[in-house]
């Protein structure tokens, strides 16, 4: 077990109304798709334009079990219809816990995080607005 994995619960914040039986969402932002939810914080926070950053993300199915599938991450500026110049990488730290590296917002304005969650042949996309 890595140090990061041990430390993760220490800075977890339970989101109101999102307490689940075996899986706890954590972080400053949250989003929901058809049958699962995510919570995450940026590292560092807040995000600085032109500076690389990471996400610490938790993901839970609505039945209370941790999400353990594949995540494809991106971020877009909806008003401008463009994404980032970088493709984040996703590392699973533990069931329901992920670290995403390689983000960089190259422009001020409203961004939207997008997480495509794949599990058991099913895809769901969680979008979370990040206004600036």
């Amino acid at each position: 077990m890595t140090i990061k994995r041990l430390l993760l619960p220490l800075f977890s914040l339970t989101l109101a109304g999102q307490a689940l039986a075996d899986c706890q969402l954590s972080g400053d932002y949250s989003g929901h798709a058809q049958s699962l939810s995510v919570g995450f914080s940026t590292l560092p926070a807040p995000v600085a334009i032109g500076e690389a950053f990471s996400l610490m993300l938790t993901a839970c199915h609505d039945d209370g079990t941790p999400f353990t599938g594949q995540i494809t991450a991106s971020a877009v500026m909806p008003a401008h219809q463009h994404g980032m110049n970088y493709q984040p990488t996703v590392q699973r730290l533990a069931p329901g816990h992920y670290r995403l590296d390689g983000y960089l917002f190259h422009m001020p304005g409203d961004w939207q995080f997008q997480f495509r969650m794949a599990s058991g042949g099913r895809y769901e996309t969680v979008t979370v607005d990040y206004p600036q």
Binding site: A52, H82, Q87, T89, D101, G102, L104
Partner: peptide, 12 residues
């Protein structure tokens, strides 16, 4: 070199 690792080659 994180940026280099994550750079995407895009049509634009």
């Amino acid at each position: 070199g994180s940026r280099t690792q994550h750079i995407q080659l895009l049509h634009r």
